[in-house]
């Protein structure tokens, strides 16, 4: 069975060692760039955190694709993993719709909802 062979995919040794090496290098890089101040991105967030998260994401993708075999595996497993991240994003994102705008103040103006309504014309 061809599919059966596919299930027993043996990753070449150099892939594991190469990915491991890349992860260690990226760890050094992320520590090093943390000491540099990249400034602030349009007043929202410091650029440092974005750089750090991009590096961490690259590392996580390497782990998922090669150590966890997602690149060779049935696509359903990758779909499950991406779904997890997507809904984590929904959770944090929709909660932030509240928390970052909690202090917003809305100016209220007193006045009729429909100024042209008849009851206002009589006054």
């Amino acid at each position: 069975m061809a599919e059966n062979q596919q299930q027993h995919h043996v990753t070449p040794l150099w892939v594991y060692l190469g990915v491991g090496g890349a992860l260690l290098v990226l760890t050094v890089v992320t520590v090093a760039v943390a000491k540099v101040d990249f400034g602030v991105l349009v007043g929202v967030s410091s650029l440092n955190i974005i750089v750090a998260m991009i590096i961490a994401s690259i590392k996580a993708i390497l782990v998922a694709l090669f150590f966890m075999h997602l690149i060779y595996d049935a696509k359903i497993n990758m779909a499950v993993f991406i779904t997890a991240l997507l809904f984590l994003g929904v959770f944090i994102g929709l909660t932030m719709f509240d928390t970052v705008r909690r202090a917003d103040v809305y100016e209220l103006e007193e006045g009729p909802i429909k100024p042209k309504a008849k009851i206002y014309q009589n006054q």
Partner: peptide
């Protein structure tokens, strides 16, 4: 991998 930069490298 995510905890390290989030907690240690702010």
């Amino acid at each position: 991998i995510f905890l390290f930069p989030l907690l240690y490298l702010i």
